[in-house]
Each structure stands twice: as C-alpha cells, then as structure tokens.
Design a protein around this nucleic acid. Sequence first.
DNA 1: TTACTATACTTGTATATACGGGTATGGTAC
DNA 2: GTACCATACCCGTATATACAAGTATAGTAA
Lengths: 248, 248
Amino acid sequence: MVQRNGEIALQPQYQKIKQYIVDHVDRGEWETGYRVPSDNELAAQFSVSRMTANRAMRELTDAGVLARIAGVGTFVAEHIPQTPLFEIQNIAVEIENRGHQYSAVVHSLDQLPAPRDIALELEVPPQTPVFHSVLVHLENGVQVQLEDRWVNAALVPDYIKQDFSRITPNAYLMELVPLTEVEHVIEAVMPDARTRKLLKIDAGQPCLLVHRRTWSGPIVSSARLIHPGNRYRMGGRFVPERRQSSKV
Amino acid sequence: MVQRNGEIALQPQYQKIKQYIVDHVDRGEWETGYRVPSDNELAAQFSVSRMTANRAMRELTDAGVLARIAGVGTFVAEHIPQTPLFEIQNIAVEIENRGHQYSAVVHSLDQLPAPRDIALELEVPPQTPVFHSVLVHLENGVQVQLEDRWVNAALVPDYIKQDFSRITPNAYLMELVPLTEVEHVIEAVMPDARTRKLLKIDAGQPCLLVHRRTWSGPIVSSARLIHPGNRYRMGGRFVPERRQSSKV
DNA sequence: TTACTATACTTGTATATACGGGTATGGTAC
DNA sequence: GTACCATACCCGTATATACAAGTATAGTAA
C-alpha cells in the first residue's frame, strides 16, 4: 500500500512526519510557541511533496498539537495537560502500588463457538472459536472489579491454559501481542443479579461498566469491566505516578 | 481563497460534502450502517476531484461520523456521544466540528462564600469568595451537557463578568490561566430532579457524571459535567457489519 | 519620516494522476 | 456443486502542480 522505494515503509510518510514533530514536542525541544518548519521545509527534509507534509501538519493541528496561521507559520500549541485517558494499566500493579494485596478468583474459563453478539464485537464470523473468562479482582480480599472477557482464540491459542489467579488476562495479552488500538466505552448501568452476587453489592445502585476492546491488527479481546461503587478516577493530585514495566 | 468559478463559494468544497453527509445522517435518512456514496461517486456528484471527496470522507471518519473499510466502502458509524467526557479544548468547537450548531444557556452565575463541601474541593478555607455557574450546552438545540462549576474567585476575578453563552467557561479559564494538572472522576449517578429537568431526561435511568478539577498551581476550578444518555466512547472505532461468506 | 509597493514567503484549497492492496462477484474449469 | 481466478470496484497513500489569500519585510516614492 505504501509504495516507498527501497526499504519497506512500515508507516506512511505523513505518519513519519507527525511522529517527528510530536517527538520533538514531547522531548521539550520544541516548546509552546516554537515555530515548526513550514510545509515546504518539511517536504524538502523528508523528500516528500508538500501535500504530504501538509497533511501531517493539518492533522496535528486538528489534534490540538499545533496551531497554524495562514501566511505566518505553524507553531507548537499550548500544551494541555491531559491525563493519559485510560492507560492500559494492570489492576494488580495498581493495587500493589497502593500497598494492598491483590488476588483474583477465576469463576469460569471456557472455549466455545462465538455467540452472535460476541462475534460482532470481535469482528469474526459467528461460531468462530473464542475463549470466555469471568473473574473477580480483589483488593485486600474485597471485590473491586468483575472482568468478563472474550478473546479471539485464533490469535491467542494458549489463553485457556493460563492460571489467571497468577497473571491477569490483561497482562498476559499485553506481553503476548503488541496492542495497536484500544477502545473504551464507559457506561452507567444497573447491575444484574449475577453481577451483584459476584461483587457482593446491593441492588438499586448504579455501577460503572467499562467496555474495553483491544486491537492488535484484528481485534484481540473484548472485556466488560464492572466496578462496584460508582467512581472511577483518572489523574488528579492524589494519584501516585505509575510508570513501571508490565509485570504480573 | 476558494477559486470556484462562477458564484462565490462561502465554504470549501470538502466542507460542502461533509455538510451534505452530516445533514443526511442528522435527518435520519442515512442510519447507522448505511453505505454512503464512494469517493468517486461523491466526486462525480459534486464535480470535484476524488481527493477532495476523500478529504471530506476522511475527516468525517476521524470525527467518528463514518467508518471506512478499504475495498468495501464507507458507512455511517454508530452514534455514541464521544466528546464532552474530557473536554480537551472546547465543547463548542467539537460540536461545530461535527457540522452541528452549538449553543449554551446560562442558568445561573453568582458569587458567594464557599460552602463547606465546595471549600474542601477547591482546597480553600470555608467562606472564601467563589463563583458558581450553571449552564447547559446544546447541540442542535438538544441538551448534551449540564455544567455545574465552582471557581476560585481570587484566581479568576473576572469570571463573573463573562458571557458564557459566547465563550465556554472552560475555554475562558484555559486562555486565562495555564493549566498544570487535571483530575477526572467518572461517576455513575441517578440524576436528581433539577438535572432531569434541565437536561430533559426521564427518571430511572443512570447518568454519567464527570467531575473535573483543574489546577494551575492551586485549584482553579471544580466542575460537574452531567451527560444525558449513559454511554461515552473514547478511541476505538465503529466497524460496520460485513457480509459473511456464503456459508449458511 | 511616512506611506506605499513589490516581493517573498506562508498556509488553504483543489486538481489530475498514479499505484498498492483489500474485497466482492461472476465466470470458468474441475 | 466446488474450487479457483479474472475483474471491477473500493479505500489509502503519494505526487506535481496550481492558484487564492494572508503576512512580513525590504525598498522606494512622497
């Protein structure tokens, strides 16, 4: 698809230019207000046409990274601190970071042909073999998350052999396949009977459901993460920095 | 700037095409999964080159309105409100980016001594002067967000003089003080009577509440953003259902 | 000095063209 | 019927080119 002569181009030219700019901004070399090279300069530097450089600049402008003024130039936009929305973080690591004890109970782990709705979610034909796991994560013995996950069996054939009381499904998947994309849908729901029982919560209280789908090219996994209680915090003053490797 | 011969073009060609598509979707003529005309068909219909039609389609895809599959076609994406959760910049801009009309209704804007709970949130002594604003954001005249905001009056003394039907509080604050940190807490709640009335929603359905606090050194503002409906998507993509191989 | 103008940039948009690769379909050979 | 393949689409990317319009600056004329 990318017809770059010579070496194989893993990503499009305009993506390389975007990466180049974002890298400089991230490293702090180009600060807010810095004037970035013009379309033509980038085109010359990367040996592409101006249209290609223009696309990179335009998309970064739409994304709020750059600001352009016709006739003047392109500048690094004001940096808005935004919490990494939903880091693919490990609930086990997070709990241990709080100095608490993590444990998990596996309620089921099966292989079966994909039901119709799950097939749609995973973008596979119905009846394709998939894995289905249901487990509860505990913090100091208290239920903190119900994880109901479906996995494309063809992509992760050994999923069903794992001991998910020792390694979380998310951690296992992350170390096995490189994630390319993540989707989060947050939903406010009233928990059903099974959920209330597994999480030991009362009826009548709304719950947060985070529906997370992860891609690695094709869709690897689709998970429903239900939290008892009803709050989910991202960022903020009291959250310690979590920037460590993916263990457990 | 737009060199369309004949009559003066008020907006670029690709904008016209975007508007054309968004209009059909908004009017319900093209529902989720509907296959929209291809690049070439649109190019012929509007007498433009495919690149121009392609830009319109690509931008609507980036905006989440359409979904494209190489080799197959372009489809109307599932409509999930996906903006206001973490207003990166401006809810007004985002709504306008979707080709819709933004408006806002200011329900109240007062200065008063901080109540006890608000003082805690803003980390100021009780009775400190604060501003309190309540407004509703509308997309095409439909209520999409209730914003209940408290602002540290000492840090933004002119807050109360603004016309928030013209500039959103968030945009005003952002251009005035450099943000250093943001906290988001997502909460599933049952809306109270006032909220249901302002957002014109029915009882019995859980809502998502985003509690957003912003720092600029000290805490500048604390806002509750309540969304009708209960689903919000970040990232990911809508993939239309495709024909399975003829295996029945 | 002041005012104007030519010039050399910048970004914004639009076109015609090209090729790569994915997907569905219809036809053909088995 | 089944398996294969040619074909005609689709989208993704890239290029060279062109003109419109905004902006800054150097140079010139008043």
